[in-house]
């Protein structure tokens, strides 16, 4: 058993290592390669070639004239120490930009995903209880409708209606421009006000799928013998609903929750762009547009690490939550 945990943990580091290598390779694939543009620009400004090289190696902790394996080792070494170099377009250390961006993204993704699951589970279980009723049919239709609306459509429409036309909510940013960045009531209120639309649009579209999944799971659980036995024992409905049905129906959705959390982090590339919400996705896209390779690689890596850790936690905790699942399994070769 402990052997499994050791292996699983080792794999997390192996995957992160592999993805870091991949980013190193990917960036070199990009048109022009790293820093070609910057070098041309600096040379045009009359900066001597030796100083250009020095500046660029400072930006990325890489000596552009060194052989590839040397560049690779330097890059990996720097990344391992949390040093991602300096952003070309913003002129700040990448680690600092990311440290400022991550809380906003995590806040929006976490809150919207939890809300999405909570509402979806609530609606789905109600539907399952009243299976076949008019309520069930109406909400099944609604769920399918919600599933077919991409979140960015919700985002653009809500931005259009609530922010631009009615002017109820701010159109861009994470906090108001005249609010001090400190932990105070006006700051929190402003942050909430700014995050309302992103969270709303990121939540709404996902509810449908979760409700349908919960409905299906609950109907399956409701047909089980132990639920019937619980009814025969005269247990109160509330107890059956929460202890017997909900627990077993939510179980399969638990892994999905952690996986989705990671996936939805990458969706923020689109979401944060629409709301000009300066989180990870926003900087990732800005870096892509500005050929800002250090920033781009770092955001890519951070999102990947979040995804890997999500899957890792899901794997490790699942066998704790559901004792029927044992880690590992039959692995006989045919």
């Amino acid at each position: 058993m402990s052997n499994y945990y050791v292996r699983r943990t080792a794999r997390v580091f192996a995957t992160i290592f592999a993805v870091a290598t991949l980013t190193f390779g990917l960036i070199r694939l990009l048109p022009g390669g790293p820093f070609t543009q910057l070098r041309a620009q600096l040379l045009r400004q009359g900066v001597p070639a030796s100083e250009v090289d020095a500046r660029i190696s400072n930006l990325q902790n890489i000596d552009p004239n060194a052989p590839l394996w040397r560049q690779y080792l330097d890059y990996m070494g720097a990344v391992a120490q949390g040093n991602f170099g300096e952003s070309i377009s913003l002129g700040e250390p990448v680690a600092q930009i990311i440290a400022e961006a991550v809380p906003w993204t995590v806040f929006v993704v976490l809150v919207s995903t939890i809300l999405m699951f909570a509402v979806g589970i609530f609606l789905g279980s109600l539907q399952a209880y009243w299976e076949g009723s008019r309520f069930d049919k109406a909400f099944s239709g609604l769920s399918i409708g919600l599933m077919s609306v991409p979140f960015y459509v919700v985002a653009v429409i809500s931005l259009y209606v609530f922010a631009y036309q009615w002017g109820w909510l701010p159109t861009a940013g994470t906090v108001g421009t005249n609010v001090e960045k400190e932990l105070s009531v006006p700051f929190v209120l402003s942050a909430l006000e700014h995050s309302l639309l992103p969270i709303f649009s990121y939540t709404l579209g996902g509810i449908g799928g979760q409700a349908l999944a919960m409905r299906g799971n609950s109907i399956q659980v409701l047909g089980n013998d132990y639920v019937r036995v619980a009814r025969l024992r005269g247990l109160p409905d509330r107890r059956i609903a929460t202890r017997y049905v909900a627990r077993n129906a939510i179980l399969p959705m638990y892994t999905g929750f952690l996986l989705l959390l990671g996936f939805r982090l990458s969706g923020t590339v689109i979401l944060e762009q629409i709301f000009s919400y300066t989180g990870l996705g926003y900087y990732m896209f800005a870096a892509l547009k500005a050929n800002d390779y250090p920033l781009m690689m770092a955001t890519f890596l951070i999102i990947t690490v979040a995804l890997i850790v999500g899957v890792y936690i899901a794997d490790l905790t699942y066998s704790k939550i559901d004792p029927r699942i044992s880690a590992g399994g039959s692995d006989e070769a045919y």
Partner: peptide, 14 residues
């Protein structure tokens, strides 16, 4: 597992 760990949208962008 490795492929799954790479975030989809950013990868597609690159």
């Amino acid at each position: 597992d490795f492929v799954m760990a790479i975030p989809g949208l950013p990868l597609v962008m690159i």
